[in-house]
């Protein structure tokens, strides 16, 4: 039975605590992906990012991703954390930790976890840049304000 934990938090992401959570005597490899806020996007100088979630569904979607990981790979433990609210440049907004007996499973499951999280988990990012703000999404035609 895979161990799992899923959280959204308005505090900073404690990656050391996440690694401890997925730690296990049977683990031969642990992967940790940390997504951090970048100071530039599409030529704009980004000053900070703000994240908003549909919290109840975000946690359920994270759990569904974890359940799929447990079906596909032999993984010991998964931990996913997403920060909400303001995230200054250079700080972690999302992290996924996976432990497994062997590194192949740990890498594959972590990759699948972050890639899927970023397409299905209902969390939205608003970018505040010099001269404006806008909601980030695959379609850049929406939500733009304050440009120019």
């Amino acid at each position: 039975m895979m161990k799992s934990s899923y959280r959204v938090t308005s505090d900073g992401i404690d990656t050391a605590a996440m690694l401890a959570e997925v730690g296990d005597a049977g683990a031969g490899g642990t992967t940790l992906f940390v997504g951090t806020t970048r100071n530039e996007n599409e030529g704009r100088i980004v000053e900070r990012l703000e994240y908003e979630a549909y919290e109840a569904m975000a946690l359920e979607e994270m759990r569904r991703i974890g359940d799929e990981i447990a079906r596909r790979w032999r993984v010991i433990a998964v931990c996913m954390v997403h920060k909400l609210g303001v995230v200054p440049i250079g700080q972690a907004s999302v992290a996924v930790a996976v432990s497994a007996a062997h590194r192949e499973e740990a890498f594959a499951a972590c990759r699948y976890g972050i890639d899927t999280l970023k397409t299905t988990v209902p969390i939205w990012k608003k970018e505040f840049y010099r001269g404006g703000e806008h909601w980030v999404g695959p379609c850049h035609a929406h939500g733009v304000s304050g440009r120019g």
Partner: peptide
């Protein structure tokens, strides 16, 4: 019913 705009996407 929740209206779900495109989520933040994956370019990190």
């Amino acid at each position: 019913l929740a209206l779900i705009p495109p989520v933040s996407g994956g370019n990190q």
